[in-house]
Write a protein that binds this DNA or RNA. Sequence first.
DNA 1: CGTTAATAGTTAAACAGTTGAACAGTTTAT
DNA 2: ATAAACTGTTCAACTGTTTAACTATTAACG
Lengths: 150, 150
Amino acid sequence: MREKHIAELVDRYISVSFSVTKKAEALIKEQIGNDGDLTNDQHYTLRYMHRAGSCTSSELAEVFEVKKSAITAIINRMWEKGLIQRTRDENDRRVVYLTLTDKGKELYLKTEERITRLVKSFITSFDQEEIEQFIKTYEKLNEILIKSKN
Amino acid sequence: MREKHIAELVDRYISVSFSVTKKAEALIKEQIGNDGDLTNDQHYTLRYMHRAGSCTSSELAEVFEVKKSAITAIINRMWEKGLIQRTRDENDRRVVYLTLTDKGKELYLKTEERITRLVKSFITSFDQEEIEQFIKTYEKLNEILIKSKN
DNA sequence: CGTTAATAGTTAAACAGTTGAACAGTTTAT
DNA sequence: ATAAACTGTTCAACTGTTTAACTATTAACG
């Protein structure tokens, strides 16, 4: 009986998480792609770098759960647009530090503002307590997912 | 004061939703890609078709929020693998019905079973009530996202 | 009826993102 | 000093995506 209940929850979770993910991505793309000429992944890369101040390819590969060569490709495209700066570490010359240029920072802040406005419009249509609990569970799920990798 | 609180919630939501999405996708890919030679999108396409029994390209394009040509490409790849059947509607010869072949159904059920086991292992690490509320909010969010398109 | 609209699906070019394997250059270990 | 490990890159091959042009078919309507 309880087993069946869990099976139902699992099923609902699979359905809805896929659907929400796709729809949210599409909406965010609409916001970002307006004039900024950025993709969703590129925005989240800028976001991470803005928060970290500076980071490496390996770090991004780990955070984004992709191979390093994938990061190189993304960084190359943004570097060509003048959004990112590469600086070799003089102490360990294998390492390349990635930082935002002024242009990159400006574009990031502009697109982030749009995304924030969008997400806000959804969040405020929820009950305050409800959304807090939702995000809390999201964060807990995130932690479990991180642990499950080790 | 309340404004600031909402801003913080929005920020946490953006961070965690991206992170969870990426991590979950990576984990599911691990399960699916084991030997089945399927991608995540291909699995979710099979999933939709299995539930619908039969569907069209346009229907998939609408559900997945992509252009029809993107669906054609996905369907082609799965058709080449012998997972999907195409049948012209004899009443309206523009329409092509898509159905799973036996091979497609078998592969779908096998991969779905793996995903279910994975998701179950996460869900059961939550408090029963907590996860129910979480999924409920997810479903509500999904509805809001659907509405926001119109 | 016949012309025009709209619809369903495909194709092709171009791009973003991804992996896997091979590679260069640079530490670190032993 | 040599081997092992690490950081990042390049390349080929692939999936997924959009845009635009196209085929074939059906619907609309004067």
